[in-house]
Amino acid sequence: MIHPMVPEVRRIKRVYRENHNTVTLAVEAAEAAGPACLPGQFNMLYAFGVGEVPISLSGDPAEPGVQHHTIRDVGAVTRALTRLKRGDSVGVRGPFGSAWPIASCRGRDVVLIAGGIGIAPLRPAIYALLRERERYGEIALLYGARAREDLLFGEEMELWRGKYGVQARVTVDSAKWDWKGNVGVVTALLPRVRFDPAHAVAMICGPEVMMRFSVLELKNLGMEDRNIHVTLERNMKCAVGFCGHCQYGPTFICKDGPVFSFDRVRSIFGVREL
């Protein structure tokens, strides 16, 4: 038996430069028919000699032979990863973690709230929903970013809007005078989309503060805790429950998360320094 902290070396099939500090690495999937990856799960990526970090899968889970990882350059390891080229090798472990509740969205409206790089882990959920678009009611995607140059997946957003009738709304925290879009917090977009809070499922991914106020707004609209899903993040070293770093109250983010139904974490969500 191989230790679960030993990565598999895989080749990068393609690199997409998403914006000034973010790339998507399309990495060949495991040779052996490994576990299928579910929307919301993550891999551990190792850049040779630099280190390993958890990166959410950001591609279409149904696309065979490849796994997409959207990575923002924020530290030494992510810097090394964003500098990799097609044909380079990368260490991969995974996929790990829980998934977005796609099945429970059937027959309901779906609200996706993304903040910053948080759009990446939601993208597989969007693919999964759009694959069977007719099964779901309204789909609203609210996406907040720092500034125009940080936005991701702009062209796809047009496709989702045009071809699939997704109510995709984008807002930024601040903008130059020539920006024609929205400026303000992501929750300000909520009144501007159609969905029935009583029969909707919400999935939120972004910084913890942004998720706190998003949950609050959704609850104000009458959504129930069990229909709101959030992703949580903590320091992570092993991804398999051994290292203890990702503990969040009674949960391990790597095993029990990163996606949690809000009713599961409600009692600890507001506790500081947890």
Binding site: G49, E52, K237, F242, G244, H245
Partner: peptide, 23 residues
């Protein structure tokens, strides 16, 4: 049981190792 990992390299940069340490 908590542990951390240290990814290290030698001076040549051609050899890397991962160590697990009690944390």
């Amino acid at each position: 049981f908590c542990s951390t990992v240290e990814d290290v390299t030698d001076i040549s940069g051609d050899h890397a190792e991962r160590w697990q340490k009690q944390d």
